[in-house]
């Protein structure tokens, strides 16, 4: 291994649900950055590709005690045990992979042949299938980003933590004879766009990065931790019911467990 690759990074996110307003900027920033296609009718949310999806969580109570909260869900880039995230090990053609260097679950779209096993494996529904050919209205292909390839029909895709931005940041660093990049040089499109500043992105292993401290917040939790997926996206909420909505609990289990 070259020296510069010795220090393993673990890119992750901390999303402050108290700040998240559910405005959807992260979703659109992601679509615009990553050339996500759209159809005339996208109201069937079961076949609508949104790498970043904002879920609405409700506390199930009646008016006027009803409460709700938004929860943006990118790919969790699960580490599982030693990088065996739920989706990576099941891919029969090794089209998706986990990198120990960055902690990112990567994918080769051109390798994927569309068996959808990874989608079955992902409990977060973070993976999407291209049921249709991606078509842009005439003229609108001009807005496509050349740093991300357009995915063809018949394959699976998902959030990449805007890995191309990492590649570009590294290119700039190499040009300037640097081996490391700064925290601000690699930020995902959703993080950058979030008008509420609710998303923080960085290297969870690096004490100098903001996420390193934020993830230790006593109100921080991850989605479905009990499954052992070991996700790299953390959420913060001051509301207990929201924190409890992040995982499944048996009826007899005290609600105090996650205080």
């Amino acid at each position: 291994m070259n020296k510069e690759h010795n220090k393993a990074k673990k890119f992750g996110m901390v999303i402050d649900l108290d700040k998240c307003t559910g405005c959807g900027s992260c979703m659109v920033a992601c679509m615009a950055e990553n050339n996500v296609p759209f159809k005339a009718d996208e109201t069937n949310k079961l076949d609508s590709i949104t790498w970043m999806r904002v879920y609405k969580l409700t506390n199930g109570k009646s008016f006027p005690d009803a409460d709700f909260c938004y929860l943006p869900r990118p790919c969790m880039h699960c580490e599982g045990e030693h990088g065996h995230s739920p989706c990576v090990s099941v891919c029969p053609a090794t089209a998706t992979d986990y990198s120990h260097e960055t902690g990112i679950v990567s994918q080769i779209y051109t390798r994927c042949f569309g068996c959808r096993y990874c989608m079955a494996a992902c409990p977060y529904h973070a993976r999407y299938f291209n049921w249709w050919d991606p078509v842009w209205p005439e003229g609108m292909e001009k807005s496509l980003n050349p740093n991300v390839s357009v995915r063809m029909r018949g394959i699976v895709e998902k959030c990449s933590f805007c890995y191309h931005r990492y590649q570009l940041a590294k290119e700039k660093a190499y040009y300037e004879d640097r081996r490391e990049i700064e925290e601000q040089e690699y930020q995902t499109a959703c993080t950058q766009a979030c008008p509420a500043g609710a998303i923080t992105f960085g290297d969870l292993n690096n004490p100098e990065h903001a996420v390193h401290e934020l993830k230790k917040n006593p109100n921080a939790f991850r989605l479905l931790e009990r499954l052992g997926t070991n996700p790299k996206v953390y959420y913060i909420s001051s509301r207990e019911w929201v924190r409890l909505a992040g995982d499944n609990y048996l009826r007899q289990e005290g609600k105090s467990e996650k205080n």
Partner: peptide, 16 residues
């Protein structure tokens, strides 16, 4: 920061 409409402004620019 930027809002959702501003982010998708290119679709108005290049749109049909």
């Amino acid at each position: 920061g930027i809002c959702i409409l501003g982010l998708s402004g290119l679709q108005l620019l290049y749109g049909p």
